[in-house]
Structures are given as structure tokens and as C-alpha cells.
């Protein structure tokens, strides 16, 4: 009885693992030089953004190197124009490592400040 349950559980988890997100393909659409080397960005981008966001919002310090709007200038897809979505630069890795990405629930994930904000899907 127990063995059957265990086998079922194992089968289920392996199916889930197989169904997981594909390995991310990192493609930088507008190559240039990042504010820090890739290894450091991978490890620390969340900390950089977190401290920058607090300084900007709470102290009004603007124009720091780490900034979401600057991230998307280089990393938004050329065709999609965004860092979210299935091939999105941010989304791909976050899906792969299963870390919830909620920056873009509020922040505009599309590059370029030109478009008119409408608040709803165009």
C-alpha cells in the first residue's frame, strides 16, 4: 500500500519536473555594456534594484545606474518590445527558476517612453 503511494508520488513529481519551464535562452537584443558584469548582474540584480527603488521612492534620488526603465532599454525583445511574455528576458529565467516576477505588475515592461499610457491592453 505504502509502496504504491510512494511510486505514484514519484511518478507525479517526475512528470511535473518534465513539464517545467524550458532552459532559458539568453539573448540580449540591444547589446552594449551593462552596468556590471553578467555574473554580478545574475547574482545581485534584485538587490541592486531593491535598494535603488527604496532610494528613489523614499528619498527622491533619481538617475541611479540600476533602474527598471534602463533595464528594458537593452533587454526588451526587438519584436515584442517587452521583457515579459514567453521569450521575455526577465520572464524566461524567472519561469525557469520558479521565482515569481511581480515588478511588471506595476511597472511598464515595454521599452521606450513614447507610447501613451492607457492603463488597459491596447
Amino acid at each position: 500500500m505504502k509502496a504504491v503511494a510512494l511510486a505514484l508520488l514519484l511518478a507525479l513529481t517526475s512528470v511535473l519536473a518534465l513539464a517545467g519551464a524550458p532552459k532559458p535562452v539568453i539573448r540580449i537584443e540591444n547589446p552594449g555594456q551593462c552596468i556590471a558584469p553578467a555574473a554580478e548582474m545574475r547574482k545581485n540584480h534584485m538587490e541592486m534594484l531593491k535598494h535603488q527603488r527604496d532610494r528613489t521612492l523614499r528619498q527622491g534620488i533619481r538617475g541611479e545606474a540600476a533602474s527598471l526603465n534602463e533595464c528594458i532599454n537593452c533587454h526588451a525583445g526587438k519584436t515584442s518590445g517587452t521583457v515579459t511574455g514567453q521569450d521575455g528576458f526577465c520572464q524566461q529565467c524567472h519561469s525557469y527558476v520558479a521565482v515569481k516576477l511581480d515588478c511588471w505588475d506595476c511597472h511598464q515592461p515595454k521599452a521606450g517612453n513614447q507610447h501613451a499610457a492607457t492603463g488597459v491592453k491596447p
Binding site: I35, A36, P37, E40, A65
Partner: peptide, 24 residues
Amino acid sequence: GAVALAPGLHLIEVSQASAPSAGA
């Protein structure tokens, strides 16, 4: 434009290169 100032400190654009504002 794009410039590397020191290892680990890279600046891409002028707008970023200028010092951050003093704040409120």
C-alpha cells in the same frame, strides 16, 4: 557614450553616467 570606468563599474549612457540627483 558607452564607457567602462573601472572593473565592475560600467556606464552606458550619459544620462546614467551623470551623478544621481540629491533627492528630496
